[in-house]
Design a protein around this nucleic acid. Structure first.
Length: 239
DNA sequence: GCGACAG
DNA sequence: ATCTTGTCGC
């Protein structure tokens, strides 16, 4: 599946909604075939009032959660930010970054929601529908759904539910007495696996390592401390 | 009409 | 998302 950098440039909300309704039919929830060896983190960064998007994918070793390689791409925000339509703004640049990777990650954690979305098409689901990699969403704020607040203890979680009771994902406490994060499947992954993976990726911060490092890298990129393109971790070194 | 509203 | 300093609590 391919997409040009400006694929969504001329779309209006009504048309974007149609795209979401169609893409939704291609989503699948299945357990991962094998335990992941690597996991990617996807995020973008912007300067205030700017149209330039700094997108990046960081691939980490699943066991150590240490970055192995990453790809950075500069793009243009041709679609406005509208809650519920985030994918149309960020996905084109993210796909470009993914294509630069020499080795694709076994699963990709995206900054935003998966199916925890009014039409089940959050950015992680949308991206997952266009690429051949299992995706999951990890958001910092709720977009859609209901849940009971998990206890203040790190590791505790509760289900994120749609109005009809459908389970959309989980609200996961990643740190004691700190706001939880919202986990949901994107595509080619199921609820149990995305929860297990998110739990495994918890480090010493609120944000799980994949998206936390992705955020860190795209910010370094935006501020000129990292350059566009594909980069590998020098052997016997750390990023 | 009112409240909610990822990044 | 980004800007931005101090401040409060563990």
């Amino acid at each position: 599946m391919d997409i040009s950098p400006n694929a969504y440039d001329t779309l209006k909300i009504p048309e974007a909604t149609v795209v979401q309704r169609n893409l939704r039919n291609s989503l699948t929830q299945i357990p991962l075939k094998r335990p992941p060896i690597t996991i990617g983190g996807a995020d973008i960064s912007l300067n205030r009032f700017s149209e330039i998007i700094y997108a990046g994918i960081v691939v980490l070793d699943y066991e150590t959660l240490q970055p192995l390689h990453y790809a950075l791409v500069q793009g243009k925000a041709s679609f406005p930010y509208v809650p519920g339509y985030l994918a149309f703004r960020e996905v084109p640049a993210l796909i470009e970054a993914i294509q630069l990777l020499k080795e694709k990650p076994d699963v990709l954690m995206v900054d935003g929601h998966g199916i925890a979305h009014p039409r089940r098409m959050g950015i992680a689901a949308h991206l997952g529908a266009l690429i051949d990699i299992p995706t999951m969403g990890c958001a910092k704020k709720k977009l859609y759904g209901n849940y009971e607040e998990p206890s203040p203890t790190k590791g505790d979680f509760s289900a994120l539910l749609a109005a009809d009771g459908e389970r959309l994902g989980y609200v996961l406490r990643t740190k004691n007495k700190v706001k939880p994060v919202y986990i949901s499947p994107g595509n080619h992954i199921d609820l149990a696996d995305c929860l297990r993976i998110a739990q495994h990726c918890i480090g010493n911060y609120r944000i799980p390592e994949p998206t936390r490092r992705a955020h860190e890298f795209v910010n370094l990129f935006r501020t000129g401390k990292l350059s566009a393109g594909y980069h590998e971790r020098p052997k016997d070194t750390l990023f």
